[in-house]
């Protein structure tokens, strides 16, 4: 990773180069509002899935805002919000050597094993 990128919460690498528009002086209070990542359970039986992010002053307001922004049409039955800063990610790169070792463990997959066609229910 080059030095002009900073890993930050669930959003990962945030470039900090001079082109990033962060020069204006903070005058509004909402600049201090933390970033929340939003997860929605679409319906019973499904996992919560990440849908986006928003800024809110506290956890409760984050849930209310998430409801308005991400579930205006029955998109979900449950919402989780979590501060992006509280998320620990595997590494700043999606193509991660952490996952490389699983590439050579083909024996973990059912297709590794050759079974004659005429064995039933296999």
């Amino acid at each position: 990773m080059s030095t002009d990128v900073t890993a930050e919460g669930g959003h990962g690498a945030i470039p900090t180069g001079p082109e990033v528009p962060t020069t204006t002086s903070p005058s509004v209070a909402r600049r201090d509002w933390p970033l929340y990542e939003v997860f929605v359970r679409g319906k019973r039986g499904l996992n919560h899935v990440h849908v986006g992010s928003l800024h809110a002053p506290d956890d409760e307001m984050a849930v209310h805002a998430a409801r308005d922004v991400y579930t205006r049409r029955n998109e979900g039955v449950s919402i989780w919000v979590v501060r992006a800063a509280d998320i620990t990610a595997s590494s700043p790169d999606e193509k991660d050597p952490m996952f490389a070792p699983s590439g050579d463990k083909v024996y973990r997959h059912p297709t590794f094993y050759e079974i004659p066609e005429d064995v039933p229910h296999m």
Binding site: H11, I14, P15, T16, V20, P21, T22, T23, T24, P26, V28, R30, R31, L35, G52, S53, L54, H55, V69
Partner: peptide, 16 residues
């Protein structure tokens, strides 16, 4: 909101 959220993943700041 969706779009500002996408822009922030690139390091932009919504208030900015």
């Amino acid at each position: 909101m969706y779009l500002y959220s996408a822009a922030e993943t690139l390091g932009a700041d919504r208030a900015d």
